[in-house]
Nucleic acid binder design. Structure first.
Lengths: 136, 136
DNA sequence: CCTTGACCTTCCCCCAAGGGCAAGCACCAT
DNA sequence: ATGGTGCTTGCCCTTGGGGGAAGGTCAAGG
C-alpha cells in the first residue's frame, strides 16, 4: 500500500512516517515509480511507534523497544528496564513541574490581584526580596 | 559593562542574552566599537528573565511579565492572572505525565523481567491485546 | 611597535518531534 | 488527453537553548 493508506491505517501522518524512515525505524520497499510501499507488517511497526509515543517514550527508546519487539530471543528484563527508567524520568519531571507550580501558586495566593501595582510575584522575579521561604 | 560581565552577573549565558535581545526582552546600547553595553538595570532585567524561566514561564509570558514589571501603573490582577494561568498549565501537564507514568508502571509490574521474551509492555505497544484495562 | 590572548561580533548548524508549504512527477478516471 | 488526487523531495517554522567558525577589538607585555 502507499504511504497515504499506511498513514490512515496506522494513525501516523505521512510526514512523520517519512521522518521515522530517516531515523531507521521503518523501512518500506520502493516501487518502480519511486513510491514507498508498505506491508501490513510495516503498518504494525507504525502502530507500535504511535503507541510508544503515546506513552511519551523518546524516539531513541522507541527504537530500542522496536528492536526488542522484533527480536525473538529478547529478554523481557531488557524491556522492563527501559520502561521503568522511562517511568522514573516521567515521574521526576512531573514532580519537578508540580513543585514549580506549587511555589508559584503560593506566590499568587499572596498577590492581591486588584488594581494596585504591588505584587509579590513580581517582587520574587525581580529578586528585590529574598525568595519567599517555603513556609511563608 | 560588556556582555561577558552581564552574563556573569545575571547567570544568563552571553548566547542567550543575545537571543533575548532578538526577542525584544532586553535592549543594551551599542558602543562605538559595536560592543553591547549593559547597565545594572539591564542586568536586573536579565535576572528577572532567569527567575521567570526557573518558574518555567514561556518566553512570551516572560515578556508580558517584564512589561508589567516595568509599568508603574500596572494592576497586580494582570500579573496574577498570567501566573495562575501558567500554574494551571503546569499542573495539567504534570497530571498528564503522571497518568502516563502510572499506566506504564502498571504494565511494567506485570512484566516478569526475566530471561523469557514474553512481555505485557510489548504486547500493549503492539496492540496485539486490547489495551490493558485501568483496573487490571 | 608588534604580537598574543581574551573578548566581542555575526552567521551557521544541531537537538526533539513534529507542522506546513511549494514545485514537480505519477496515477487514475473521465 | 486532461484534470484531480497522491506521491516525491526540499525548505522554513516552532521552543529554548548549545556549539563553533571566521573575523574585529582591546589591553598587556616584550
Amino acid at each position: 500500500m502507499n504511504i497515504g493508506e499506511a498513514a490512515a491505517q496506522s494513525g501516523v501522518s505521512a510526514k512523520m512516517i517519512r521522518h521515522y524512515e530517516t531515523l531507521g525505524l521503518v523501512k518500506p520497499v520502493r516501487r518502480a515509480n519511486n513510491y514507498r510501499s508498505y506491508t501490513p507488517q510495516n503498518v504494525a511497526v507504525l502502530r507500535f511507534i504511535r503507541h510508544a509515543r503515546d506513552l511519551a517514550f523518546p524516539l531513541a527508546e522507541v527504537k530500542q523497544l522496536l528492536a526488542l519487539w522484533q527480536d525473538e530471543g529478547r529478554e523481557s528484563a531488557d524491556v522492563r528496564r527501559i520502561a521503568l527508567g522511562h517511568v522514573e524520568a516521567l515521574e521526576e519531571k512531573a514532580r519537578s513541574m508540580q513543585a514549580v507550580a506549587a511555589s508559584l501558586r503560593h506566590l499568587a495566593e499572596h498577590c492581591a490581584g486588584d488594581g494596585k501595582p504591588d505584587c509579590p510575584i513580581l517582587d520574587d522575579l525581580a529578586g528585590s526580596r529574598q525568595r519567599m521561604a517555603a513556609e511563608d
